[in-house]
Structure formats: C-alpha cells, structure tokens
C-alpha cells in the first residue's frame, strides 16, 4: 500500500472518528471540534469520497475530497458567529475541515507527481 493510499484511508478514519464529537458533552474538556448534524453529513461525505479515492488510487477523487472539505471549511469560517450559520459549527469546525482539505490536497499533489514519474521515468 502506497503512502498516498495509506494517508487517504487515515484521513477518512479521522473524519469518521470526528463524527463521534456530535455525541460528546458540550464541554471544552472533551469536545475538541464542534460537530453538528450538517457537519456530520460533510464529514461522512469527505470520508466516503476519500476512502473511495484511496481504494481506486484516484487522484481525481482525492481532489474532489479536498475540494469538498475546503469549501465547507471556508463556508464555516465565513459564517461562524453570524446568522445564518448553515453548518452550525465554529472556528474549530473550520480548522478541522481545513485539515482534511489540506491533507487530501497534499495527497492529490503527491499522487499526481507519482503518476507523472511513472509515465515519464527519468
């Protein structure tokens, strides 16, 4: 299993684990990331696309996973503390979604370079 594939699965697992925060008591000692029902949907979609990307070794799907996560992070950062707040999260939600977006974006970049190196070996 390549590093890109492993990384894709690891980020998908992280997204699924973060879903558990929706059940966590509302205390800062436990709830590191604010997760609401709409955020659960986003996390599960990112995890599903990311896992599919890893399974199929698809850089396109990696880019899609990154795009969804980054778009949700930007939306959350823009609406945090305002009305409407469609995702219902806060800055921690934006930061975590941003991490998933950065991670999948980096995996897309690494995967694309690996494909190029295979197509044009030096």
């Amino acid at each position: 299993m390549s590093g890109v594939t492993r990384g894709g699965y690891a980020l998908a697992v992280a997204a699924v684990v973060a879903v558990l925060f929706v059940f966590a008591p509302r205390t800062d000692a436990i709830r590191f990331v604010a997760v609401t029902v709409p955020v659960v949907v986003v996390l599960l979609v990112v995890a599903a696309v990311g896992a599919a990307a890893s399974r199929a070794s698809s850089t396109v799907l990696m880019a899609v996973a990154a795009g969804i996560a980054v778009a949700a992070a930007v939306l959350q950062q823009a609406q945090f503390g305002r009305d409407p707040n469609w995702l219902g999260g806060n800055g921690s939600t934006a930061a975590f979604l941003g991490a998933l977006g950065l991670g999948y974006g980096a995996l897309w970049y690494a995967g694309r370079h690996a494909e190029r190196a295979e197509a044009h070996p030096r």
């Binding site: 800062d28 590191f32 990331v33 503390g81 305002r82 806060n90 800055g91 934006a94 975590f96 991490a99």
Partner: peptide, 15 residues
Amino acid sequence: VGLLWVANSGWKTPP
C-alpha cells in the same frame, strides 16, 4: 498539539 489549536479556534467568535 494541532488539536490544541483546533479546539482553541472554537471560542474566538467573530464579528
């Protein structure tokens, strides 16, 4: 350490 900063982004509330 990353999660420390993630969590602390949660209570800096704009605007």
